[in-house]
Design a protein around this nucleic acid. Sequence first.
DNA 1: CGCTTCTTTCAGAAATTTGTGAAGTTAAGG
DNA 2: CCTTAACTTCACAAATTTCTGAAAGAAGCG
Lengths: 165, 165
Amino acid sequence: MTESAGGRRDAEAVSQFVESFAAQLVEAGMQRMPARVFAALLSCDDGALTSAELGEQLQVSPAAVSGAVRYLAQQHMVSREREPGSRRERYRVHSNQWYEALTNREAVLKRWEGALRDGVHSLGADTPAGRRMAETLAFFEFVDGEIAAMMERWRVHREKTFGQG
Amino acid sequence: MTESAGGRRDAEAVSQFVESFAAQLVEAGMQRMPARVFAALLSCDDGALTSAELGEQLQVSPAAVSGAVRYLAQQHMVSREREPGSRRERYRVHSNQWYEALTNREAVLKRWEGALRDGVHSLGADTPAGRRMAETLAFFEFVDGEIAAMMERWRVHREKTFGQG
DNA sequence: CGCTTCTTTCAGAAATTTGTGAAGTTAAGG
DNA sequence: CCTTAACTTCACAAATTTCTGAAAGAAGCG
């Protein structure tokens, strides 16, 4: 029944994983279609699929794939490749690149910091609210710095564990 | 014109900050109303407001406040207080508690890890897709561990900078 | 124990979001 | 340079989400 090893992929099981992982991403704030596309890429063997393949596997229109892929590319979660000598495009998760992109929530952090700075200014740095906000701001700035260091440690850890991919 | 120091709060400026910070939170995936409520609490001087005050400041119904607050409490981003001897409730951001709660995205990470573990199993640990997923899983596990350490360093850093709140 | 005040729940209206089909655009290959 | 295959954009329909008003549910206070 389970034919995990070696043989053909169990399409049913794969699809179930895709949908369940996508659901988690949705719950964390990602839109449904990008989440499904991303999960599908993550679970295919060479980490890359064409638009048509994605549409078929997920049972959605080319338009939906197009929108999802555009979003994912903007977030640096997939990259687009042109198959040389074909109009087909191919979307890929670079197995290590993609979770580094997740850490690119840094962009989000930066905007939060901007908003908080405005807040400190308009509330007044000498008010209780202003002080609370300044402390919050300091926290995010701290986190920014830590994340870079953490990713560095991860690369070391990863190489020890998996060898250089 | 700017009356930031000492005097009355510039309601206009405060409201503008509230809406703009809320917008950032929305963009990061939070629902609109919780985001607005949270921003309002963050920018009031004692970090706590009653349901009625929130409704008035944000121009929404008691029902909307109720829903937003329930969500925020579940996420541990605010706590509820009962004013002793009154049916009024008061919602508060504990100025340091709240961003620790943000780090409680750990719950999210844990669920992702669960989903990935399932994925490794159903794809087969010996397949390329399975290996990619195992590496992703390892990354999240690594991050989990790092976050605790980072928060510890933050507390030290914070105390040096702001004294114990 | 009932009155009053505040909060929560619920059904439905309004608004937003999401995905489709069809037309439009780009680029390969004859 | 024309044809054809692929991707993208756009307007609209469907589904979902979000907020409100009204009614029901707690909890202080006389």
